[in-house]
Design a binder for these strands. Structure first.
Length: 576
RNA sequence: GCGCCCGUAGCUCAGUUGGAUAGAGCACGAGCCUUCUAAGCUUGGGGUCGCAGGUUCGAAUCCUGCCGGGCGCGCCA
């Protein structure tokens, strides 16, 4: 049980006592009552809004009710003072034993500190990356990959059973283009001069090995054959080769999905039919024509065509959406809807991580999931573009010319940990700049460095203590820690709340911001030792105090490691 | 025309799902340090939270309407 849960229970017990004493009605709705650290530390260690929330429901005023609750809380051994403040907050100051014990808990629980059972083992499916299998991963995919993976990890820490999933779009026109591009490389591998890659085909060199492998396997029998003879095998071979590349790219970031779900297999298994039938049974499918798109120029041609449509407008979409094309094949949406239906069979909650350029399709898929699952929780997180900069100048990229910056290049240049941390230093729906120079800069302006540096300093203490402070006692007396030092413990003790609130909000970046705050507080404490050697963590003349401070440092280090572990970042032992 | 996202200090961004006097870094002002507890430290100024209403004990946060910016709006994927 976390500190916060414990005090929420204390508040609950205080309210129970008032009910028993007849000072509060028994059927009082306690919804909205919370126990949180106040924004301003001078207000105390914890604050509850109980009196403000309940006053109206209990037919009294907040400060009067607070006057009843506060003494009950003040009577607790863990509480040194309970003050009524402002509109009716009850501010609690906890005795320093509480914080000393909490530091002990951090060290005892180690990497388990901050884990929560909030999710109660609920199954959450997180689908992320899902880049088209038509080439290596580029930086456009990177942020979604990191955010999705960190979110998955965050949810695991919060007690959810997480499945990491990748949807392979191997059924549409783009993989046909891939197959044709591979065919060209196949002819090239057999000695043909193919010249310039035609417009509309994938130009990248990464298809050359695919062409060679196809040439080796098939010889020249498909060189002049009609497309219908080679398209399917070439497509399958090329997609398989692309997935090998993509998995290797993801592995560079430390990302491993549990499931790679194939769109082609979803279709082959008849899932879209099943989904459409489920919708049809609810009267949500009909034959009809779409309106002329508003984005068309007035002189563009438009002919209404009869299509199979899903009534997504009943769930807030702007127009109904086709699930089948006029040639009878499934639309992307038709298959994707079925895929989500399938995912929902094995999960209590679904989360998708999408690029912001797909924002326009969120409503239809939410509509479909709502209709097919009777409102199972489903969140689509949109991840904004990352602008790559080199010395302040935007890096020019053109996918058509094939000179996009690959994820592998970036990871090789700056390292996995820097990439992952940096991608989490902004709210995911906000645009972000990624400057090659700044992300590796050794300065306090660089949060990656700043957090790692704090951890490295803590490690250096443990490396040096034996030689600098020889007679270190076995046991630590944490009552030797002063108020400034306990303030660090208080900040560290917020970690479990950060994990829970970040998991609840599906916002892994909060962990990064929290670690930055924690590192800043640690550095500030450390810097006091510059002016006053007695305030250093290692004090040669005082082994007992050193022992206590070492525990403090170890606790902070543990929290940094736990937070970084959620982000998928390794903690630095020392700075290069 | 419609939809989505955004609008917080000069700049880049946080803001604990509705809490108390709205924060951090950069930049700017002042002082300190020249150091392996290194890759600076301390401290100060700086705000109509786009605007106007509404909801309530309480709003940067929720609702409505405007203003401004971005993105999207085909049987594509």
């Amino acid at each position: 049980m976390t500190l916060y849960a414990r005090f929420a229970a204390h508040v609950d017990a205080a309210l129970d006592a008032l009910v028993t004493g007849g000072q509060l009605p028994a059927d009082l709705d306690r919804k909205g009552v919370s126990v949180e650290p106040p924004r301003d530390p001078s207000h105390g260690d914890l604050a509850t809004n109980a009196a403000m929330v309940l006053a109206k429901r209990a037919g009294t005023n907040p400060r009067a009710l607070a006057g009843l609750i506060a003494p009950k809380l003040e009577a607790l051994a863990e509480v040194s003072a309970a003050e009524i403040a402002g509109p009716g907050f009850i501010n609690l100051r906890l005795s320093s034993d509480v914080w000393q014990e909490e530091l002990g808990t951090i060290l005892a629980e180690g990497e388990g500190y901050g884990r929560s059972d909030m999710g109660q083992g609920q199954r959450v499916n997180v689908e992320y990356v899902s880049a088209n299998p038509t080439g290596p991963m580029h930086m456009g995919h990177c942020r979604g990959a990191v955010v999705g993976d960190a979110l998955a990890s965050l949810l695991e820490h919060a007690g959810y059973a997480v499945t990491r999933e990748y949807y392979v779009n191997d059924a549409g026109g783009q993989v046909d283009v891939l197959a044709r591009s591979a065919h060209l490389r196949y002819r090239e591998a057999l000695g043909e001069d193919i010249g310039e890659i035609p417009e509309g085909l994938y130009p990248g060199d990464y298809l050359k090995p695919v062409g060679k492998a196809l040439a080796k396997e098939h010889g020249d029998r498909f060189v002049a054959a009609p497309e219908s003879e080679w398209l399917v095998p070439f497509r399958e071979a090329a997609v398989a080769a692309m997935l090998v590349m993509i998995k290797a790219d993801l592995a560079l970031l430390g990302i491993h999905h549990d499931i790679f779900a194939s769109e082609a297999e979803v279709q082959a298994a008849g899932k879209p039919d099943a989904a459409v039938e489920a919708l049809r049974a609810r009267g949500l499918i009909y034959e009809g024509a779409l309106e002329r798109p508003k984005s068309l120029d007035p002189h563009d041609e438009w002919e209404p065509v009869e299509l199979t449509l899903f009534k997504s407008t009943q769930f807030g979409d702007d127009q109904d959406r086709p699930v089948k094309k006029s040639d009878g094949s499934w639309t992307y949406f038709g298959a994707d809807m079925a895929y989500h239906f399938q995912k929902a069979q094995n999960a209590d909650q679904l989360i998708d991580i999408w690029g912001a350029d797909h924002a326009g399709t969120v409503k239809r898929i939410k509509a479909a999931v709502a209709a097919l699952t009777d409102g199972k929780p489903f969140d689509v997180k949109l991840v904004q573009m990352v602008r790559l900069l080199r010395a302040g100048e935007p890096v020019k990229m053109s996918k058509r010319a094939g000179n996009f910056v690959t994820l592998a290049d970036v990871v090789r240049e700056v390292g996995r940990d820097v990439v992952r941390f940096t991608m989490l230093t902004r709210k995911s729906d906000a645009q972000m700049d990624f400057d090659f120079a700044k992300v590796v800069e050794a300065s306090k302006d660089n949060p990656v460095f700043y957090v790692q540096y704090a951890h490295a300093r803590i490690r250096s203490l443990h490396r040096k203590v034996a030689s600098e402070v020889p007679d270190l006692p076995e046991a630590a007396d944490l009552s030797l820690l002063d108020d400034d030092e306990l303030a660090l413990v208080k900040l560290a003790a917020q970690f479990p709340r950060i994990v829970e609130s970040a998991a609840d909000a599906h916002e892994p970046h909060r962990v990064a911001f929290y670690l930055h705050d924690l590192a800043a507080a640690f550095h500030a404490q450390w810097n006091k030792g510059n002016d006053d050697p007695a305030r250093r963590f290692l004090v040669a003349q005082n082994p007992a105090l050193t022992r206590a401070r070492l525990e403090l440092a170890a606790g902070i280090g543990q929290i940094i490691r736990n937070g970084l572990s959620i982000m998928g970042v390794a903690a630095a032992e020392e700075m290069a």
